[in-house]
Design a protein around this nucleic acid. Structure first.
Length: 916
RNA sequence: GCGACCAUAGCUCAGCUGGUAGAGCGCCUCGUUCACACCGAGGAGGUCUCAGGUUCAAGUCCUGAUGGUCGCACCA
């Protein structure tokens, strides 16, 4: 006797135990004896080392683990690589905040060395929590291959990449305009600037033309930047201003005189006044314009986001917004403010600190990515790497085609320090893989390393390389590069995926993965992006505590295929919790009835030659349904449709296996049942459950493993379900050896197809009988006699074949046939199923009027259907142009509907006649 | 401004290459049938956003509009 399962599935008592067992048994590591099995490698997008698991991580973990487990069961040499990211700004800010709260000090006060020590300590204390959370998700990661983006291997890889790119001239240092995040006190890349909608204003300011009474009115959204203006631009073809080109402006408030230039690129005559103030130091377009006209670069905003000299002293120290007020006030006083109008616009904000990003001139390190982008673009266009869903490739193309140089230096302390050394003696720059104590040019020991660190995404971009030990040519690298799959959210397509593509190809000549699968975002239940301020954040761990990991995973798997945002639904998670419980209880029922199951006998007697007719109609039917489900799951998984695969399995388990088969099988499991029939039903049930658990395991690993371990009659091809063979259909109708051996014929054998039709009829008859009983307020549990009125011998023969099952599940005490012409018993409820009239004798309890209403209603529907069909078939266009099988199907439908209507009309007449 | 995606039952979502509108939840009526009340039985509920077009046939393909989401972009 198998051990008894508890009445309700309790995830908490199962998950940790199974996870530990899996991991300690080495099941997450590909075994050495895979021989020539194809490899399947996925690298987990490394979460921030001090981060906590959010729904995005949970979705990633679910999709990847499902795919990984699926491939592992299919026999691939499967490896899923874990790790964490040092997350430059994010982590540094946390530690800074902590330092301020606990000691009231800034990082500058404690100094770089001490601050870094604290950050490492913080990482030790708070890091790794997310690893435990990934374990709770059931993630079958190869923990032995764990990597951190700032560990030794990663650091070596980063230096190797940096130095190589420098030597190739693709990394360089330059003084130019960059995006400055004064909130975090660092430069940021274009990608880290997000344009937010702002209700701004457009001010018109009159600039006096030198030596004349004339003014030139410029339009601006940032009047405070006039303090740094070094010119005014007009369109060369603008008749209003042509005479002013070459003259100068007496710039108000500053005492400076600046030129009026003609520039067709910057100026749009239609916009504003057609005259643009040019501030090369604080606007990217103006910077370019300044270069074209050799205008001065006058920086008036400093690294703190405050006005600085050479702006007039009275403005120095003011914040940008204060300066704006002050400037406007003075201009207004001087009568220079001509007009103000509201102006909706986009303003760049730092993705990290949220402050408005100031463009300003600065010396930074850049990567010239264009040459790499070209190859990365080609890799996708050529199909070497495929992006799923396909339309995302368009975003990728656009971005790659319009790529700008990447600013990679950050004025932070937490990160990979730039491996460049400046010589105090000869001023040379040395870039090196090893730390330098002397200048490579002059040998002077007076060298100091660049203070800055690299953008976090620089090391992330190398991730598929570093996880495998690159630049060392490790065995792991040889086996697992390129990865099979990169699965991540589309929000980091540019930040991360694009960079990995570029670096991967550049350093190895091969793109880092074959497939890129991009999932969408999980939104709050209100349909908005989850955010703490909105209070709509859902914590996956809390969901696991409440519903179990499998419930959350199944939910996320069914949502994963969506191409739009996923609006979270707690109710659906709850629904999948219920599903796990349903599966659990179905298995519980099975175990109560599988004592002594003899699978060897079952396989040799029934399965081997495919002698399906030895099985009961119900047994044949469920095996067919199961095979169909497996085929669908297999096909949908191969098409990336986890949602449809999961949905199919759900539907099968609940509505075919539980709703019908388990009920039907009870007759064979009852005391006194025929031992042979019992044995075959046992074999059927054990086989179906075994196969179903295998198919479901990638989605809901815990509950399936827990059941499978206790399931009598399972095929013991593995100690764990994790490494048991997946029931996989091959391309044709056949199936791979293993669990599906000899089962392919279930989809086509006549004896099986006949059983399928029989059970479908049985379902419809029982449904009708329940319907009649419910309408007549007969309690569902009450057993009743049932009569079937028909003269159609074939139809009746079919009923005869399922008689016992029908009576058993339909709670029918006695099933008898009435001839078509026979009168209805007095007060019987009647309805029609195809050729059969289902007669439920009710001893006059039936409400004849209700009866008639129901039939009349259905009759009405049928007549409309008939009308439509008739019209369709009378249409020569249809009969001549539609494919023959479609026309034929419609003809058959017409016959069936006609027959049904006749039956119902007859019935209605009869009922009306019998009304007193 | 350019582009993508979405618009199907009260809610969250399926509906593949065009061929009788589906699921889960919610709602209504029953039910302590020996796997499960995290359950069972029955039921109500949709002119598939709108307008055109292609077709014998359109939720499905095309065009346009409207609404929503999201990318990209220097309109001062």
């Amino acid at each position: 006797m198998s051990s008894t399962l508890s009445k309700v599935y309790e995830p908490a008592s199962v998950e940790a135990r199974l996870y530990t067992w899996w991991r300690d048994s080495g099941l997450f590591v590909p075994s050495d004896d895979h021989g020539d099995a194809p490899s399947y490698t996925v690298t987990l997008p490394p979460p921030n080392v001090t981060g906590r698991l959010h729904m995005g991580h949970a979705l990633t973990a679910t999709i990847e683990d499902t795919l990984v487990r699926w491939h592992r069961m299919r026999g691939f040499a499967t490896r899923w690589l874990p790790g964490t990211d040092h997350a430059g700004i994010a982590t540094q800010v946390m530690v800074e905040r902590d330092l301020l709260a606990k000691e009231g000090k800034s990082r500058l006060e404690v100094g770089r060395e001490s601050f870094l020590r604290r950050t490492w300590a913080w990482k030790e204390d708070h890091g790794g929590a997310i690893d435990g959370q990934l374990e709770r998700m059931g993630a079958s990661l190869d923990w032995g291959m764990y990597r951190f983006t700032m560990d030794e291997v990663s650091s070596r890889a980063v230096r190797e990449a940096f130095v190589t790119l420098y030597e190739q001239g693709l990394i360089y240092r330059d003084h130019r305009l960059i995006n400055w995040d004064w909130g975090s006190q660092t430069a940021v890349s274009d990608l880290e600037v997000e344009a937010r909608d702002v209700d701004g204003k457009l001010w018109q300011i009159a600039y006096p033309v030198t030596g004349t009474e004339e003014t030139l009115v410029v339009a601006t959204t940032r009047p405070e930047t006039m303090l740094g203006d070094s010119g005014v631009a007009v369109h060369p073809e603008d008749p209003r201003y042509r005479h002013l080109v070459g003259k100068t402006i007496d710039l108000p408030l500053t005492g400076r005189t600046i030129p009026i230039v003609a520039d067709p690129i910057l100026v749009d005559m239609e916009f504003g006044t057609g005259a643009v103030k040019v501030t090369p130091a604080h606007d990217f377009n103006d910077f370019e314009t300044g270069k074209r006209h050799d205008l001065d670069l006058i920086q008036v905003i400093d690294l703190d986001g405050r006005i600085c000299a050479p702006a007039p002293a009275r403005f120095v120290g003011l914040s940008v917004s204060e300066a704006r007020e002050a400037v406007l006030a003075e201009l207004e006083q001087g009568g220079a403010l001509v007009k103000v109008e509201p102006h909706a616009m986009k303003v760049g904000h730092s993705q990290r600190s949220g402050v408005i990003v100031e463009p300003l001139p600065s010396t930074q390190w850049f990567v010239n990515v264009a040459p790499m982008a070209e190859k990365a673009l080609a890799a996708v266009k050529d199909g070497a790497t495929r992006i799923v869903p396909g339309h995302r490739a368009n975003d990728y193309y656009r971005w790659m085609e319009n790529i700008h140089d990447w600013c990679i230096s950050r004025q932070l302390w937490w990160g990979h320090r730039i491996p460049a050394w400046y010589c105090g003696a000869c001023e040379a720059i040395s870039v090196s893989r090893q730390d330098l104590a002397a200048c490579q040019k002059c040998g002077s020991g007076e060298v100091r390393q660049d203070e800055d660190v690299l953008d976090t995404w620089f090391s992330s971009g190398l991730w598929p390389l570093t996880t495998l030990g690159w630049p060392e040519q490790t065995p792991a690298f040889k086996t697992h590069y390129p990865n099979t799959l990169m699965e991540t959210g589309w929000d980091i397509l540019f930040f991360w995926v694009a960079r990995m593509m570029m670096f991967g190809i550049h350093f190895t000549g091969e793109p880092p993965f074959k497939d890129i699968f991009l999932h969408s975002m999980v939104l709050g239940e209100d349909g908005q992006k989850m955010s703490k301020t909105k209070g709509n954040v859902v914590d996956p761990i809390e969901l696991i505590d409440e519903y179990g990991t499998d419930a959350l995973r199944f939910y996320l798997a069914t949502m994963g295929g969506q191409e739009h945002g996923i609006v979270f639904s707690r109710k659906r998670v709850e629904g999948y919790r219920n599903f796990c419980n349903k599966l659990w209880n179905a298995s519980r029922f099975a175990m109560m009835n599988l004592e002594g199951v003899d699978m060897d006998a079952f396989r040799s007697e029934v399965v081997t030659p495919g002698r399906w007719e030895l099985l009961s109609v119900a047994d044949r039917w469920i095996l067919n349904r199961c095979a169909q489900m497996l085929k669908t799951v297999d096909a949908e998984l191969k098409g990336w449709r986890l949602d449809l695969a999961a949905g199919k399995a759900y539907q099968f388990v609940w509505h075919e296996l539980c709703d019908w088969y388990l009920e039907l099988s009870k007759a064979n499991f009852k005391e006194g049942a025929d031992p042979t029939a019992r044995g075959r039903s046992q074999g059927t049930l054990a086989l179906v459950l075994d196969l179903t658990l295998r198919a479901l395991h990638p989605f809901i690993p815990f509950v399936t493993e827990e059941i499978w371990q206790q399931l009598p009659g399972r095929q013991a091809d593995s100690k764990s379900l994790m490494t048991a063979a997946f029931p996989e259909f091959s391309g044709d109708e056949g199936a791979t050896p293993g669990p599906l051996a000899n089962l392919a014929s279930l989809l086509s054998a006549p004896a099986v197809l006949e059983a399928v039709a029989d059970i479908e009829l049985l379902e419809r008859v029982i449904h009708k009988r329940r319907n009649l009983a419910a309408d007549a307020r007969v309690p569902p549990a009450k057993r009743v006699p049932l009569q079937i009125r028909t003269s159609n011998q074939d139809a009746w023969a079919r009923v005869e074949r399922v008689r016992d099952a029908l009576c058993f599940v339909g709670r029918v005490t006695e099933l008898s046939r009435l001839d078509e012409d026979a009168p209805l018993p007095h007060g019987a409820a009647v309805d029609v199923v195809d050729e059969l009239e289902i007669v439920l004798p009710l001893d006059g309890l039936v409400d004849i009027e209700e009866e008639k209403r129901r039939i009349a209603k259905d009759l009405d529907k049928r007549r409309k259907e008939l009308e439509g069909l008739t019209r369709k078939l009378a249409n020569a266009g249809f009969t001549s142009k539609a494919p023959p099988h479609v026309v034929e199907a419609e003809r058959e439908r017409l016959v069936a509907v006609t027959r049904n209507i006749e039956k119902q009309e007859h019935l209605l007449a009869q009922l009306s006649g019998s009304t007193p």
